[in-house]
């Protein structure tokens, strides 16, 4: 594979004495849609601003599109488009003026694409920015970014103010960008969106990368939920390695199983006489909750990267 579009290695960032990033790693390859997840304050926006050369990492190496984002900011910015998480616009400019301005400053805008995106996002370009809602301000930034046809899209929680219809439009647009070979870094809290769109996922917490890899890889590391109806006494499963949270209701048993022990557990189940079996892979939400639920101590142990 060619050199990554985004490669952050061991990035530290301090704001005064507060450490925002702690040896953060993030890699995105060309043509990928990369999900970037983390709770509020985990350092997602800080990482993105370092990638944009707006902040400088205190340690570690940061490469973007083969360049140094701090030193080569202007040259690199011609090749990317950014949608901030909290879009503030010039109150006395109209949405259309802002889209044109941002497009020109990036080095040109495709008028047909602009028109098409305005229609798809149902955005009225003649309204002054101060009269726009949060969602509409976000649409302005999205239209400006998507109309630019940049190699790399950096989107910081781009749908947090959009309604479900517009979210669907956004999903389509990202998939189109992907089909044209664009690379996308998508920070988001909306896990269903990430599941739908992203090839790889990086989960950070407290400024550190705690998981990263493809969704399949991440799922492989974790537990599936199994519900089975058996003929024998399901309590026998309690002692089987890899079984967690066993709950018995009559002849039905529900438990979580480490994917690495799936074979052993299935063997034990077969011994009990299976009458019905449902196995669900963990959803991203479960993955996420496992990392951000109330067991932070467990993270450092099994939270190493898989990619």
């Amino acid at each position: 594979m060619s050199s990554p579009v985004i490669e952050v290695r061991g990035a530290d960032k301090y704001f005064g004495r507060f450490q925002a990033l702690d040896k953060l790693d993030l890699t995105v390859h060309k043509g990928q849609v990369a999900g970037f997840l983390g709770p509020n304050g985990a350092g997602k926006s800080t990482t993105i601003r370092i990638l944009l050369g707006l902040l400088r990492a205190d340690a570690g190496s940061v490469r973007l599109l083969g360049g140094d984002p701090w030193r080569d900011a202007v040259a690199l910015h011609r090749r990317l488009a950014y949608v901030p998480g909290d879009v503030t616009l010039w109150p006395n400019l109209t949405g259309g003026q802002v889209i044109d301005l941002l497009g020109r400053l990036r080095g040109g805008i495709d008028p047909d694409r602009r028109k098409e995106l305005l229609a798809r996002f149902e955005l009225d370009p003649t309204r002054k920015a101060r009269t726009y809602s949060k969602g509409n301000r976000q649409k302005v930034a999205l239209v400006a970014a998507l109309a630019s046809d940049a190699e790399l899209l950096i989107l910081d929680e781009p749908t947090s103010g959009l309604d479900p219809l517009m979210e669907a439009v956004f999903t389509e647009c990202v998939l189109e960008a992907k089909s044209r070979g664009r690379t996308v870094l998508l920070s988001s809290h909306i896990l269903s969106e990430v599941e739908k769109l992203c090839d790889t996922v990086t989960i950070i917490r407290g400024g550190r990368t705690v998981e990263s890899g493809t969704l399949d890889e991440l799922r492989h590391l974790t537990r599936s939920t199994v519900r089975a109806t058996v003929e024998g006494d399901p309590r026998a499963l309690e002692s089987v390695e890899g079984v967690h949270d066993l709950r018995v209701d009559g002849d039905t048993v529900t438990f979580d199983v480490d994917d690495t022990h799936m074979n052993t557990v299935m063997g034990a189940l077969v011994g009990l006489g299976i009458r019905g079996l449902v196995s669900n892979p963990p959803s991203l939400e479960e993955l996420f909750m496992r990392h951000y639920g109330d067991e932070p101590a467990a993270l450092d142990g099994d939270g190493s990267t898989a990619a």
Partner: peptide
Amino acid sequence: ELLLSTAV
């Protein structure tokens, strides 16, 4: 921030 993310 928005402006400086372009080629400015």
